[in-house]
Design a protein around this nucleic acid. Structure first.
Length: 216
DNA sequence: ATGTTGATGAGCT
DNA sequence: GCTCATCAACATT
């Protein structure tokens, strides 16, 4: 006799998505966190619209032994102030006077590490993202690039300091496992000024994704 | 390969 | 206070 399976009897049931807890961000190694963020989902609820997608590219920045990091050598200014908070807040800043870049502050109070989100696979609120980007084409440059994904998600410098445990910007774990052989680690982009540290392989990409930022 | 763009911070006064 | 070199991109060619 065959009985219908109940949800509890299915093999490998996928649990519902969960919001990533602050503990995740407060760990001490930004390189590990950057790697772990691949396959997680990033959402915003801004101007009453839900948008989001799957993280496919990140970069780690460490407060010690990393000249590329804005908080290197304890640099403490109006811009970097938020980096010294406990992990789990947004560090958003303008680069080249044009583009907002979204970083997640990690580690504990006073240890100013960060992870830059560089690439997103759009999943939620795509019409709004197209509108915000001023395009009609569902293609890589919709969210492939750190200055583009913020535009698509509606993230601007006014989200500097936003608490990622709130309901404006947050991340979710959808229980996707990204194996090491699906990941490319390579030097970070655009930090040639950082000397020896420019060679550190702290940029992480999902190999198969077409939504990573353009190659250099 | 080159132009656009303006915030940032270091170094000065 | 002010100037100026720098810059974790992107669009266009």
């Amino acid at each position: 006799m065959i009985t219908n399976p109940t949800p509890n009897s299915q093999t490998n049931p996928i649990p519902p998505p969960t919001k990533i807890p602050l503990d995740f961000y407060r760990r001490s190694d930004p390189v590990l966190i950057a790697r772990d963020l691949l396959g997680k989902h990033l959402y915003t609820n801004i101007d009453g619209v839900l948008t989001g997608g799957r993280i496919v590219e990140t970069e780690a920045y460490a407060h010690i032994n990393d000249q590329a990091c804005h908080s290197h050598l304890g640099r403490y200014t109006a811009r970097t102030k938020i980096m010294y908070e406990a992990g789990g807040v947004a560090y958003v800043y303008l680069v080249y006077g044009r583009y907002a870049l979204f970083n997640i502050i990690t580690n504990e109070v006073g240890k100013a590490d960060a992870v830059l989100i560089r690439g997103l696979e759009p999943l939620e609120g795509i019409p709004e993202m197209l509108l915000r980007r001023g395009t009609l084409k569902y293609q890589r440059n919709l969210t492939g690039g750190p200055g583009l994904l913020t535009q698509a998600l509606g993230i601007s410098t006014q989200h500097y300091g936003t608490d990622l445990s709130g309901d404006t910007i947050w991340l979710e774990d959808h229980h996707e496992v990204i194996a090491d052989d699906q990941v490319v680690a390579s030097p970070r982009v655009g930090i040639d000024y950082a000397g020896f540290d420019a060679a550190l392989p702290w940029r992480f990409r999902i190999k198969a994704s077409k939504w990573t930022s353009p190659a250099r």
